[in-house]
Design a protein around this nucleic acid. Structure first.
Lengths: 154, 154
DNA sequence: TCTTTTCAGTTGTACTATACAACCAGCGAG
DNA sequence: CTCGCTGGTTGTATAGTACAACTGAAAAGA
């Protein structure tokens, strides 16, 4: 066995506890497997490229804010992506402080490739699920992620 | 805003694609937030301690196999946990190669504390969910995680 | 206008988690 | 007893991250 961590579901567990446990399992696994599946593109690089594709380019600071990463982290990630030719920096003529980051053709290609590979993995994993369950699961996940902490009031 | 990454849900997206996207978001966020919430106990340490509690002690090699980590990684993690007094190594009298790892009282206490803190966070996040949705979400997550890749056949 | 403040980004430093490889120490089979 | 296997540690390297200090450019105030 490579990775067990099987369904040891304690019986008298509440739904919330199950969700907590399964989310924890998933989080740790995702971290571990992401690198193995796509050595070309870490999870962070992948999401960064995805963001650039969606937005058609943006500033490093936007990426940092959006993903709650330090700007230095983004800076180095972007440097790496530039070095490997996946993104390009363009000096904003309006404001010489900012660099607009855009995907290169190579970046778009790699991104599509990894997305497809990931999609295939998900599809395989979810192949035997009834459509109705898929819909609901998708909705639940979106709802879960959409939650934002209430602002601390005085 | 600290971390946006909001619901930019592309419209014509399939359920599988939504699941993929939301799982990706969750994975990256979990990684980022786990450290901030519980600086005392990384996600890995937490799961390791949890495993020890469940099983009432086991060998480092078991942990490594179960969580698909290298034995050296586990070795260092365990060393750290021992240094901070959360686990204890006991030489197996049957086999002097193995060390049985067990939680100390302090370990049990910290584990319970972090578990409770995590549980509270989940509860808050899921507070407004109808019970039926919670049940289903829990079931879906468990089903998702229970999946194991089909063995590659020759 | 000139100065101060703010903002975008880079670089230096440090830490954590991780893997791989080399190694040591018991155990068991021949 | 020696050889190979197994459990574990240590050396080394890498990735990802944060924080702090810095640079250069724009914006705001005097």
């Amino acid at each position: 066995m490579t990775a067990g961590e099987g369904p040891d579901e304690p019986a008298g567990e509440s739904a919330v506890e199950t969700i907590q446990r399964e989310m924890t399992v998933f989080a740790r696994r995702a971290r571990a497997s992401a690198g193995r599946m796509h050595p070309e593109l870490s999870l962070v690089s992948y999401t960064l490229l995805g963001h650039l594709e969606e937005r058609g380019g943006c500033r490093a600071t936007d990426l940092a804010a959006h993903y709650a990463l330090d700007k230095s982290t983004v800076s180095r990630q972007v440097s790496a992506l530039e070095r490997t030719g996946l993104v390009e920096r363009r000096l904003d003529p309006e404001d010489h402080r900012v660099q607009v980051l855009v995907l290169t053709d190579a970046g778009r290609r790699i991104l599509a490739q990894v997305t497809e590979s990931r999609r295939a993995a998900f599809k395989e994993r979810l192949a035997r699920w009834p459509a109705e369950d898929l819909e609901r699961f998708a909705e639940y996940l979106a709802r879960y992620n959409a939650w934002t902490p209430p602002p601390d009031e005085p």
